[in-house]
Design a binder for these strands. Structure first.
Length: 286
DNA sequence: ATTCCAACCTGATAGC
DNA sequence: TGCTATCAGGTTGGAA
């Protein structure tokens, strides 16, 4: 569920509280899956580092680090996966505080104590699809980042047209492929396709230049709008009364199968495209 | 080279 | 009521 807008909102809200602060303590969970870098190494290498700021590449957050002497000392990479969340938390989550103890919530995989902060930064992820890695040197060369295409926020029609040209797969698969453009997930693929009137199952090579232009515009605007209203949290998709973000209120098709299309009043359908649940309006999208 | 699909994991829910 | 089966999804890595 966290896609580019949710990650960007997270970055913007978290940065002011961590920027310039020194990490005074690190706690990790026993879970194995989230750690691309061994938990012990994360604890040892992160302690004492200063966070210069938070960047973003697609759905990845990149914490720029500096050592005690003021030299750049690498990057903490965080991917939220599907259920990951980065929050500034307190004892409500079962952490005794003051450098002692372990969070009672087993889903908290990383806890950063910051000098001068009462509350630690927590990375919580029940399904453990999220990832934590510590990258020395040039983060961009890490395989996880090196393969990513340009940020989807800047998608241009021409670039989308060339990415789609000659492909035997569907246009939705092209949007979801992070090597083409980074940041689009299932929700915003469906929403952007709806806004541009393109059916998700359309063979990518049949997309016209005009459609590519409209779709790229739809991608940019839907991502920007979602960021504006705080993203959408649908990990709780069966109770979409919107506790975290507000964008799910504006979803035109995602998780709306069987409901009326907001444009034509036809029925929104759900199928499988690119091995994902896919929502669209058969009348508005051709 | 490109596309497809299983696997990773947990929690919510549908069905029996 | 309580159990089991199914599904959700981002990414990778291996198969087709």
């Amino acid at each position: 569920m966290p896609e580019l807008p949710e990650v960007e909102v997270c970055r913007r809200e978290l940065e002011p509280t961590v920027q310039g602060r020194v990490i005074s303590g690190v706690v990790t969970s026993k879970a194995k899956n989230p750690f691309l870098t061994a938990a012990r190494v994360v604890r040892e290498r992160l302690t004492g580092q200063r966070i210069l700021g938070i960047g973003r590449r697609g759905k990845y957050l990149l914490f720029a680090l500096q050592d005690a002497r003021g030299a750049a000392s690498g990057t903490l990479l965080v991917h939220l996966g599907m259920t990951g969340q980065l929050v500034v938390g307190t004892k409500a989550l079962g952490w005794p505080g003051n450098g002692g103890g372990v969070p009672t919530d087993p889903h908290i995989h990383l806890l950063l104590e910051l000098e001068g902060c009462d509350s630690p930064v927590l990375f919580r992820d029940p399904r453990q699809f999220g990832k934590i890695a510590l990258l020395p040197g040039d983060a961009a060369r890490h395989p996880r980042l090196a393969r990513l295409g340009p940020d989807a926020l800047g998608m241009e029609g021409d670039a989308l047209f060339s990415a789609a040209r000659g492909r035997k797969t569907t246009i939705k698969a092209v949007l979801l492929d992070q090597t083409n453009f980074a940041g689009i997930g299932n929700i915003y693929a469906d929403e952007a396709l709806f806004r541009s009137g393109v059916r998700p199952s359309r063979p990518a090579h049949k997309l016209t230049k005009a459609e590519a232009g409209r779709l790229a515009y739809a991608v940019r605007t839907v991502l920007m709008r979602a960021i504006e209203v705080g993203g959408s949290s649908v990990s709780d998709y069966l109770h979409p009364d919107g506790s975290s973000g507000y964008f799910q209120i504006e979803h035109a098709v995602y998780d709306r199968s069987g409901e009326p299309c907001r444009i034509c009043w036809g029925v929104v359908k759900k199928t499988v495209v690119a091995q994902r649940g896919t929502h669209f309006c058969p009348r508005c999208q051709r």
